[in-house]
């Protein structure tokens, strides 16, 4: 039996209505899913701020830990976090960039590079505690660096190295081949091409990757505890500058240390309510540090993108 034209029309309209209905359903599901994450994040942040904000003060930032919650501060914790990150950056940036450039520009495509690539991708997913154990065996016991800032920094450098390598490769891959060809056409060697074209053009992407890696490293606790970071430290590492010749000193590299997440964890596990507030305040400082670093990453990416035109 043939359907009349109007019947067909209503059927098509109905079908369209059903499809559009599902379209809207998915829109709402998607929106709700997004909101769950955001609302949770904001609740957490609001909770942290309400609890911790009254404790934030110059004194909190400039005091050592104490058994009296109102006298306790995070000076040794943030100084420790800062110095560890400094070591991490100094170690992971040159290594990661060099490895990335090699893999992208120099390495031949063969089974060896394939294996290296697969391994780097896998390393990025290894739990951080494993890096802690590796660092404990390698840096603490084998190289005898002790339970020091140097060990902590190198452990975190291992952790973020795959991220830096990947970011470098992504950034280099985004450079059009015509740039390289133009450079070779003018008689430049490979290193000259890398030095004056590849590196400058990929700096934005690389730095973004580095900073995102570092902002992950700042919140890491497991590997740092494994290599023997301490909880109570009421002194600062040796100053890197001295009044005597040769004026700079690397002694701080071998000093014991603590970091922000460890200090927070210790306070959370205390019975006194006031210590919980301290932990919240330390959480705010840690979050501000992370946000600042991420903001810097966005800014750098923006600056470098604007400068480059091809």
């Amino acid at each position: 039996m043939q359907k009349s034209k109007s019947e067909l029309q209503t059927e098509i309209k109905k079908r369209i209505a059903v499809i559009k209905f599902w379209d809207r359903v998915f829109l709402i599901i998607g929106l709700l899913s997004t909101l769950v994450g955001l609302v949770l994040l904001f609740t957490l942040m609001a909770d942290l701020f309400v609890n911790g904000f009254p404790r934030l003060s110059y004194k909190f930032l400039s005091s050592f830990p104490s058994r009296f919650p109102e006298e306790a501060g995070i000076l040794s914790a943030w100084a420790g976090s800062f110095l560890v990150l400094l070591v991490t950056a100094l170690a992971s940036i040159p290594l990661g960039i060099a490895a990335g450039i090699y893999l992208e520009e120099y390495a031949r495509k063969n089974w060896l590079t394939d294996i290296i690539e697969i391994n780097i991708a896998n390393l990025a997913g290894v739990p951080s505690i494993v890096y802690g154990l590796l660092a404990l065996g390698l840096f603490v016991y084998f190289f005898k660096f002790g339970e020091s800032i140097l060990t902590g920094g190198l452990a975190l450098a291992l952790l973020i190295l795959p991220m830096v390598i990947m970011a470098t490769r992504e950034a280099i891959r985004a450079i059009p081949n015509s740039i390289r060809e133009a450079s070779y056409a003018l008689g430049a060697t490979k290193w000259q091409t890398v030095q004056s074209h590849i590196i400058p053009y990929s700096t934005g992407g690389i730095l973004t990757g580095v900073i995102i890696g570092l902002s992950r490293a700042i919140g890491e606790t497991a590997p740092i505890i494994t290599v023997g970071a301490l909880t109570f430290i009421a002194f600062l590492p040796t100053s890197p500058f001295s009044s005597e010749f040769p004026f700079i000193s690397f002694k701080w590299l071998f000093d014991p240390f603590t970091v922000m997440p460890i200090q927070m964890f210790n306070w959370v596990s205390r019975p006194q309510q006031e210590f919980q507030l301290n932990a919240a305040a330390a959480g705010i400082v840690l979050m501000i540090m992370t946000l600042l670093m991420n903001g810097l990453a966005i800014y750098i990416r923006y600056r470098f993108r604007r400068k480059i035109k091809w």
Binding site: G228, T231, F232, I233, P256, R270
Partner: peptide, 24 residues
């Protein structure tokens, strides 16, 4: 830990930083 931390805190204050105490 909380007891040792308290002692370490007071001891370092009494020694005016001449001795460093770390507690893990």
């Amino acid at each position: 830990y909380p007891i040792t931390e308290a002692v370490a805190e007071e001891f370092q204050k009494a020694k005016r930083g001449a001795v460093k105490v770390t507690v893990g």
